[in-house]
Amino acid sequence: MKNSTETLLMLAELLEAEPPILPPGALQQVQTLAAELETFSEANLNEMADFIITWIGQFPQEQAIFEQAKKRELQGIPEPSEIQRTFPNFQVIEETDSAVVITPAPQAEKTSLVRHIKQSLKQWTQNNR
C-alpha cells in the first residue's frame, strides 16, 4: 500500500507542479489517463498505481525532471537554472487497505487522494485545452 500511496502522491504533485512539468501537448494522454482512472475504485489503489507507473513511462524526460527537482527540494538545494519549481504540500492523514486521506496544503479540507487526483486531472485538462 505504501508504494501505491507514493505513486499517487507523485502523480498529484506532477500535475500541480509550477511551472508545469507535463507538456501542454500531453492533453490527449492526460485525458486517456483520466478516463482510465475513472474505472478504478478507491479500493484498487495498487492496480491504479500500476497503471500510473505504466502511463508515466510515456514521459521519461518529464519524469526525470520531476525526480531531480523533488530531490533538490527535499535537500533544500536550489535548482541551477532560473526555473524554480514548487510542489504542493501533501500530508497523508490516514492510510488504510482501501483508502488514503490527504490534505493538499496546510489546514486544507481533508480529501481522498484518489478524488484529489481525479479533480487535478480535470483541472489540468481544462487549463491545457
Score class of each variant (00 low, 15 high):
Q119N: 03
V114M: 05
M48T: 12
V30M: 07
N3Q: 12
F51R: 11
R129P: 01
K118Q: 08
E62L: 05
E95A: 15
P106A: 03
P106L: 04
I102M: 02
A108K: 03
D97M: 13
L74F: 10
P88S: 11
Q63Y: 15
E79H: 12
E109I: 14
A64T: 13
P24H: 04
L11M: 00
T32L: 15
F40M: 05
E79M: 10
L14M: 05
P104F: 09
E79T: 14
T96F: 08
V92S: 02
L22F: 03
V114N: 00
E62Y: 06
E82T: 13
P19I: 05
F66D: 02
V101H: 01
P20N: 11
T54M: 11
Q31S: 02
E95Q: 14
E95C: 04
E47C: 12
T96K: 04
E47H: 14
L27F: 12
L14N: 10
E36I: 07
Q107H: 15
E67G: 04
E38C: 10
I52P: 01
P88M: 09
Q61A: 15
T111Q: 15
K70I: 13
T54G: 03
L74M: 09
A49F: 09
G76R: 08
V114W: 06
Q28C: 03
L121A: 04
R72V: 02
F51T: 10
S98C: 13
E82Q: 11
V92C: 06
E79L: 10
Q28E: 06
M1H: 14
T54W: 12
V30C: 10
D50A: 15
A12Y: 00
L113M: 04
